[in-house]
Amino acid sequence: MERAAELTDFDAVVAEYWPRIYRFALGSLRDKGAAESLAQDCLLKAWKARDRFRGEASVSTWLMQIAVNLIRDRIRNRRLQFWKRTTEASVDDLIVADGKSSPEKAASARQQLAAVWNATASLPERQRTVFLLRFVEDMDLLEIAAATGLSEGTVKVHLFRALQAVRAKVKGAGQ
């Protein structure tokens, strides 16, 4: 299988997918240290299971599937590990200055971006996962369904709800 052959050069797989897995983990966990650790665990799991990869999905979808499961476990465990130190990613890390907008417009854009960031943080886990996979990772609904193990219809429902919640927060922030 062509897809399985992609795993023979695992160094190349790591180089290509490490930033993506880290980014998805960071968006989900909001903790740089935890995101780094999770991306490592994800690639280590993939390395150990590479012989069992049959290529039914793309390598990218397969890795995201592992990451989604690890994030789910991590979120569950985190409730029991409240004493652990975190290196929290804040909305200040998110802001992209374009240098063209007026200060007022920049402030308004910043406020709205912060609203989206905070809204995604308060979404239920599945809605947040689907939202990030769709709007940060640019995955289509079928890919998201494969990565999350949900049906396409369920993915749609989670996505609609997430969008409604995010939009409501943005409106509340003064859009």
Binding site: R23, E36, L44, V116, F135
Partner: peptide, 23 residues
């Protein structure tokens, strides 16, 4: 456009992804 900015923001936030270490 707002979702596009969010995507760019998250991507730039993670652009300085730490180098992978031996697990």
């Amino acid at each position: 456009a707002l979702l596009g900015s969010f995507r760019e923001g998250v991507r730039s936030m993670s652009a300085e992804a730490p180098v992978i270490r031996v697990p």
